[in-house]
Design a protein around this nucleic acid. Structure first.
Lengths: 264, 264
DNA sequence: CGCGGAGTTGAACGCATTCAAGTCTTGTGG
DNA sequence: CCACAAGACTTGAATGCGTTCAACTCCGCG
């Protein structure tokens, strides 16, 4: 049971010191969940909103044959089911990847914040929308990019989020996902995920081994994945650091492609 | 400039009559946008939140070659950029499909609602999350389903949303999308979209013609698309009607597939 | 009458899936 | 300490879904 990451560390520049103290006081008993275990099931009524203080979790939705699509990956510091405060039930399952601990806020206490701590209340809305933006970008990733780029883009995002939260350096980070998980995240078979990871390794981009992603060439990772990070809504300082590390990104372009280039 | 759909019609059971009157009074000048025109650009600072009173619009994100992925399709009654209230800028472009009109609420006025109309303020948060759930499901669609199922699932969703809002009957609805648009929505080339639409037509599921989707067999459409609608967070009555029209849907199943069936 | 956008179709190619057979690692029990 | 089972990872070969390229039709519009 590590001390864990605080909300203030997770979302710098968002909370006031008073917010931080206040929200700490509202937390109910923390919970621990073993690896590869369900946190919440689709449709189940929820009474608390939880955020990860350690470990990784993901949201899943399965097709009628039982094959799962990973819809989001949550890293330490993320709220994992904040939408349940407004929607009461979720439309997907949430599972842990490794062992996790989370702090919990009862919905009623969040509701009281609307009057007592309006700024904090707004922060929660804002956080839920930042989370949604990440999930929206997920559709772009699996819809528009080819296999290798999908995985590189996925890795680049997780790096950016971990790095912005100071949970890792530039050389890699803990990532307790199997190749089958990568497949579920990026909409491909485990076998194909394996081959694409092999290519990324061969070309000197990155290596996934023993629950850790080792990054060999950060700029290459970002460019193979066509990664941009505006959708993460990071504080200006973190954005600047990322621009420095990952390269300028693409220059912005509008409208349909002049010459519809082959899918990359 | 038609009278257009009201928020109350769009989200039945959500607003109180007072909410409805109040929000109407806050609306700024409505705007009209011509077909195939940009509403907002990625990164642009916004001062208003708009909702569609008529017409269709979509959110897009392009890869580095300029090819676009449709991230969401907005039908009359949808808020299209409500997240901008909390995030100030958007991470994607918004374009019209046909001619649209929208009502606008200044961010400052929404902010004032937090004290004056707390219930209404919460409704806006809730609406933004219902919208997010739709966009999250988009990742499932393009990540897990094969071509024909992707399109059928997409059509089934639009039908469900239009029908729940009483904007169409069971025989079809206005859908001002080209086959190229369908391709951008479902993550495939226009050519392949054409072939898949041909199959759906041949097998008696539905026909897309002249900016209208004609539904020949609603249950078939839903089953080909493996469509479920829990993620739409519709009022109970609409859910019951849909269950009646579309069939029971799949019985819920958890965990990985016992025998990993081929991708459908 | 000619242009452009949307839709359609055929054929070749290639990315991704499927099936299958392996290796390697890890943890468990004899 | 070793045998064994289970899961993760790897690799090859065949198949097939989707893309690409290209040509052609249809239709509305200037």
């Amino acid at each position: 049971m590590s001390a864990g990451i605080s909300l203030d560390q997770s979302y710098p520049n968002l909370f006031t010191p008073e917010d931080q103290v206040f929200v700490r006081a509202l937390e109910d008993d923390p919970v621990s969940i073993p690896p590869r275990h369900a946190l919440t099931l689709r449709g189940e009524p929820l009474s608390h909103a939880a955020y990860l203080t350690s470990g990784f979790a993901g949201r899943f939705r399965a097709d009628w044959t039982g094959r799962r699509q990973l819809l989001s990956l949550h890293i330490p510091g993320d709220f994992i089911d904040l939408p349940s405060f407004m929607l009461f039930r979720l439309d997907h399952d949430i599972d842990s990847f490794n062992a996790i601990t989370c702090a919990r806020l009862h919905h009623d206490r969040i509701a009281q914040m609307r009057v007592t701590m309006p700024h904090l209340y707004d922060c929660f809305w804002r956080i839920s929308l930042m989370d949604s933006a990440i999930q929206r970008y997920w559709a772009f990733r699996v819809g528009r990019l080819v296999g290798r780029a999908r995985i590189a883009n996925f890795f680049a995002e997780i790096f950016a989020r971990m790095f912005a939260r100071k949970l890792c350096g530039t050389d890699g980070f803990t990532l307790p996902l199997t190749q089958a998980d990568i497949g579920e995240a990026c909409g491909m078979t485990p076998v194909h995920a394996n081959r694409m990871l092999g290519e990324l390794r061969e070309e000197g981009t990155c290596t996934l081994e023993n629950g850790r992603l080792v990054i060999h060439d950060l700029r290459l990772l970002a460019s193979v994945g066509q990664f941009e990070w505006d959708y993460l809504y990071l504080p200006p300082q973190a954005e600047a650091e990322l621009a420095d590390l990952l390269g300028a990104g693409a220059t912005r372009q509008r409208r349909r492609a002049p010459a519809p280039a082959p899918r990359t």
